[in-house]
Design a binder for these strands. Structure first.
Length: 111
DNA sequence: GAGGTGACTGCGA
DNA sequence: CTCGCAGCCACCT
């Protein structure tokens, strides 16, 4: 962890998100200890597409369950398609059953 | 070394 | 109810 950059830490957590589940920037930020700095998580995702293995950034949405970063997928519809492909229902650019598919690392990965 | 940026969040009006 | 503002911190130029 300490050897990894903040970006890498975010990538690892995001990759731990189970299929059919989603998480929020704030939840990840909180888990990484940078609570209140959800921007850093989002900013890290900005370079996520340059990371390898690829990061399932489509599983990371804002606190409202809205696909705020869909425009960074190259195609605004790509993010929604990926989520729907995993069984997640997306309506009006936001997760329909957000509370049901929400995955909080600080809870799921709780010690 | 300093300044600017941003895939967010929470609170106030 | 919706809209706006300030705080937050790592990375890039």
């Amino acid at each position: 962890m300490e050897d990894l950059s903040f970006y890498d830490q975010v990538y690892q957590v995001v990759r731990l998100i189970p299929k059919g589940r989603v998480s929020s920037y704030g939840a990840i930020a909180s888990y990484l200890g940078t609570r209140g700095s959800a921007r850093m998580v989002g900013y890290a995702m900005n370079a996520a597409h340059t990371a390898y293995p690829p990061v399932p950034a489509q599983r990371v949405v804002n606190r409202n369950g809205m696909l705020t970063g869909k425009f960074h997928f190259g195609s605004p519809l790509l993010m929604q398609q990926l989520l729907e492909n995993e069984g997640i229902r997306v309506e009006n650019d936001k997760i329909a059953d957000f509370k049901k598919v929400f995955w909080d690392p600080s809870i799921e990965l709780e010690m």
